[in-house]
Amino acid sequence: MKLPIIAFGDPVLRKKAVEITKDYPNLKEVIDNMFETMYNASGVGIAAPQVGLSIRLFVIDLTDKEEPDLKDFKKVFINAQILKEEGDKWNFNEGCLSIPDIREDISRNQTVTISYFDENWNQHTETFSGFKARVIQHEYDHIEGKLFTDKLSPLRRAMIKSKLDAISKGAVKVDYKMKFPAASKKR
């Protein structure tokens, strides 16, 4: 089932998400719905807070990318903890399903080591580099209550403030279902 994506300005995007247990209600369905929602919005990753759930869960699928090392990269991350970020920082133009129509160059570390459970509750500690690391760091930020716009300079954030306000009010055109926090407060 396609879920509405929570737009910038909703408090759930600013909460540090909580860990879950194996018996979290309908976990397989939640994961399936997150993948379906992400595919419908043409995303490569989505975190549970983006669908209104303040839990430590995110999914990533890079299998449609051209690079050979991404062909099999479809993963579920439960209760993830980044252990180490290292390597040179590099800029890349990032966007976010919760912040449509805004893309900015964001600097992130080249390599990340992360501990997490997969959908079968197998624990992993793995190190990823390049685009995989970037997407993991972006989605991980969501479960920490952070957004990519937080990494911008104060001047750049001020320059896009009116666009962010418009998104929160629903004054943006998207091809997927969204929930806008300030849309009902217009009057």
Rank of each mutant, 00 (worst) to 15 (best):
V18H: 14
L147A: 00
I136T: 05
K169I: 00
D150Q: 06
W121S: 05
E19F: 11
A80H: 09
I46F: 00
A171G: 01
K89D: 08
V59N: 04
N91E: 15
K74N: 06
Y116Q: 00
M34H: 09
D10E: 07
M34L: 09
F117Y: 14
I160P: 00
T111I: 13
P4R: 06
E85Q: 14
N122K: 13
G130N: 04
F8M: 07
F35G: 04
G145E: 01
L155W: 13
S107K: 12
S42K: 15
F92A: 11
L70S: 02
A183D: 06
K132H: 05
E19N: 15
Q81A: 13
P100L: 01
Y39E: 05
H124R: 06
S184E: 14
S98C: 07
M178L: 09
I5K: 03
D141S: 06
Y176T: 02
G130C: 01
V44Q: 11
P181R: 07
L13A: 02
V112I: 10
P68I: 13
M38F: 11
D69Y: 14
M38V: 05
S153K: 11
Q50I: 01
E94A: 04
N109K: 11
T127S: 10
T125K: 10
E119V: 05
V30F: 09
V135W: 12
